[in-house]
Amino acid sequence: MNALDISSITFCYDGATVNALQNFSLTVADGSMHALLGPNGAGKTTLMRIITGHLRNYLGDVSIYGGKIPDQDTLRSIGYAPQPISLYTTLTAMENLKFFGTMAGLKEREIKDRSEKVLEETELSSYALKYVNTYSGGMLRRLNLAVALLHSPKLLLLDEPTVGVDPQSRHHIYETLSKLNTEGMTVLLCTHIMDEAQRLCSKVTLVDKGTTIFNGNMNEICDLEKLFLEKTGRGLRDE
């Protein structure tokens, strides 16, 4: 069974004249790490919001391990780390994890055990009781990821997980992802960092103007950035 099956999705925002996604399809195999690349405004975040159930009035079909959103088990199978740091900054890391863990339906004992595990994985154990607003940019990103991992999702959705972090934190985040993927977690990675995507992911989908412009195996691509620019053009995307 595929982790994610998206078939022929079309979506348009209220008042917009152009579709944000047009007849878009994507398949992510179970256990793979799949890169979703595209210039700004290509439709990547819209796609993430459709997969996570935030946008619903679309045409087409989305299936996660055979389930549909907003089915509770399907929602539980997803872990989502959004691009903005979506944490309560006046709570501690532990309080954030307890909150999101309860929302995910974990029991108190599970929350405690899993919190310790994910904080360890993201090397934040010694900061567990510190308020999040005292964290550095890299620590915030790692905690953002830790929250997404807390309920042991089968499919991890990451939207620009390393924006604004130093190379050390970025390296640590990618090492963590690589380890989780080796352990069996499926990862859909949205990023602009081509070399990391090429190094970590086995499959790649290029999206532009709401449609798929390339879909293939990473090992067949020599230079991902060159391919990206060839397919999407060198013109600036300021609109």
């Binding site: 996570t52 159930g53 979506s86 339906g105």
Partner: peptide, 13 residues
């Protein structure tokens, strides 16, 4: 604005 509400709705709540 900070996306916590959006994140909250990715959970079965």
């Amino acid at each position: 604005k900070d996306g916590t509400l959006q994140r909250l709705f990715t959970y079965p709540v």
